[in-house]
């Protein structure tokens, strides 16, 4: 029954927002307290939470979808359920606030998506480390839904300055073995006494700290930092148009 009540309320969200002229401001205050820790103070995406200012969301674009996501959380992600913690009226106010953002800050995509796709899989060789759907390699972050998860500005920064805000869990692990060999790769696990990594050839390694000369986690990306120079400004726009279009379709 509880779910049905929530669904009914969700359907009434736009009405609610129209009826309550203070809903957006009230929602902003709720957002700062309950959401900004992950989605950022201005909802442009934080460390873990996606950008919410683009007017398109990874779990559906309708008001009822937003209400449902806030209420129920998203299984398999860090998004928790706020049912119980937030009154339904406050969830409705959050929906009104998040909706208000999408009209303000959206940056138009300039480039050509098809040309960008060609660059991604061709000149850029991005698929050697990234996956989109079933294509590519899962060494770096999966980009299947990158367009829905991240802002255009964030994606641009990730291409030209991959170290600027490293995706959590994708640091660089450097291990020096007892015989002096240096092995560098993407973090698959790192704790006080062991390290697991995949090098750029896709080979998996696991080490105990006691068995090696040193092991370090460096907060930099193994991704080359020269894409800003390799691509022209137009190329970059095309690539970003492609990335921004990635919404989870397989």
């Amino acid at each position: 029954m509880k779910l049905n009540v929530a669904a009914l309320l969700a359907l009434s969200v736009p009405c609610f927002a129209q009826q309550d002229p203070n809903a957006v401001e009230a929602g902003r205050l709720v957002f700062r307290m309950s959401c900004a820790g992950c989605h950022g103070l201005h909802a442009t995406g934080g460390r873990g939470g996606p950008d919410l200012t683009r007017g398109t969301y990874s779990t559906g674009d309708a008001d009822k979808d937003l209400f449902s996501v806030i209420s129920n959380g998203v299984p398999g992600t860090e998004m928790p359920s706020f049912r119980g913690a937030l009154e339904d009226a406050n969830i409705s106010r959050l929906v009104a606030y998040v909706r208000s953002l999408s009209h303000a800050g959206a940056v138009p995509v300039k480039g050509d998506r098809t040309a960008g796709e060609k660059l991604f899989w061709g000149k850029g060789s991005c698929g050697q480390c990234h996956r989109v759907g079933m294509r590519g390699t899962a060494i770096g972050p999966d980009l299947t839904r990158a367009g829905k998860q991240r802002s255009l500005a964030y994606l641009r920064e990730s291409v030209v300055a991959p170290d600027a805000d490293l995706t959590p869990g994708y640091a660089t692990i450097v291990v020096v073995t007892r015989d002096g060999a240096k092995i560098t790769g993407v973090e698959k696990g790192f704790d006080n006494f062991s390290a697991r990594l995949i090098d750029l050839s896709g080979r998996y390694y696991s080490f105990l700290k006691d068995d090696v000369k040193s092991m370090e986690r460096e907060y930099r990306s193994v991704m080359p930092s020269n894409y800003g120079r390799m691509f022209s400004a137009n190329d970059l726009d095309d690539l970003l148009a492609y990335l921004a279009s990635l919404g989870g379709e397989r």
Partner: peptide
């Protein structure tokens, strides 16, 4: 209110 971490 709340807190947030800083990128990096």
């Amino acid at each position: 209110s709340n807190v947030e971490g800083r990128a990096g």
